[in-house]
């Protein structure tokens, strides 16, 4: 089992024939993801990586039955791509592109919700169900099949966490990189219940960072609803106040959104919080052997 995507999930790629889209779609195909086509306006009717190219998402969905779209279009066109996917009946849009304007994402997400389309990202590594389906840019070889669910704002910390979990002899059910922008799609609070309900997931790793309050919301949710063990790390304990560390989301304003605040809230919710990401694997091993 897994959450959201599996070996049967049919995926299209928006921005299929571009440099990034091509490189990563090829890696996903190699991993075994069922990429059934792609969309690039004005290239409809051609074939790319052995798959059909369509001019519109609507045509692609009608012709292939795809339910998930992986979005690689340039930042200025992300909102258009998400809106088009929502209108075409896509069920889940995974937005990889970095640098989409916040205002565009606000509009796109509001419309996606209205159309019942789930979104992941933007500016994220994507989602992977180990050894079944990779929709994103993560190095697939790191994710061995197992019983740990993983949710992370940071891309490279997703790889770091998964690698440690696998080195300890465990593996991953599904890992979701939710992105660290100010406005993102699925977050901890929506993903935690999916892992709780997934019979194969035995424990959950949650990786957060400074800025915003999604981790605080997650802590409140975990306290009331999650029975499986949760291991968490919050990046940015040593980040100076008021400085921006790459992600637009990682801004501390006043006391809100500090690492200390988030770690305390998670600990109070019964989560095993580690101070260094180097201890994620060991902590997972510890909580599962209890």
């Amino acid at each position: 089992m897994s959450i959201l995507v599996n070996k049967d999930t049919k995926v299209i790629v928006q921005g299929f024939t571009g440099k990034e889209g091509t490189f990563h779609a090829e890696q996903c195909l190699d991993y075994g993801t069922k990429i059934v086509g792609g969309v690039t306006p004005n290239k409809g009717g051609t074939t790319h990586l052995g798959q059909p190219v369509f001019n519109t998402v609507k045509e692609a969905v009608l012709s292939t039955g795809a339910t998930v779209s992986m979005i690689f279009v340039p930042p200025a066109f992300v909102s258009d791509a998400v809106l088009e996917a929502a209108d075409a009946g896509i069920e889940l849009a995974v937005i990889i592109t970095e640098g989409a304007p916040v205002r565009d994402m606000q509009e796109a997400k509001a419309y996606a919700i209205k159309k019942n389309m789930l979104t992941i990202g933007p500016n994220c590594p994507g989602i992977i169900t180990a050894e079944e389906c990779k929709i994103g840019i993560m190095p697939g070889s790191v994710f061995k099949k197992g019983n740990i669910g993983l949710i992370s704002k940071s891309g490279t910390l997703t790889y770091e966490g998964a690698n440690q979990v696998c080195n300890e002899g465990f593996g991953i059910t599904t890992a979701v990189g939710i992105g660290g922008d100010p406005i993102i799609g699925l977050s901890y609070k929506q993903l935690l219940p999916l892992f709780e309900a997934d019979p194969e997931t035995e424990a959950i790793v949650m990786i957060g960072e400074i800025g915003g309050d999604l981790e605080i919301q997650a802590a409140a949710y975990i306290k009331e609803n999650i029975t499986k063990p949760v291991v968490a790390f919050i990046a940015g304990q040593t980040a100076p106040a008021g400085k921006r560390m790459g992600h637009a989301g990682a801004i501390i304003s006043g006391s809100a959104g500090t690492a200390a605040e988030k770690m305390a809230a998670l600990e109070a919710a019964g989560v095993s919080v580690v101070k260094s990401p180097a201890d994620i694997g060991k902590k997972v091993s510890e909580v599962l052997k209890k």
Partner: peptide, 26 residues
Amino acid sequence: VNGAGLAMGTMDTINYMGGTPANFLD
């Protein structure tokens, strides 16, 4: 470091091990 999250996590780990980070660099 590559990635903002891992970069912050690296700074945190250095701090945890008793050192002090001189910069953030992604």
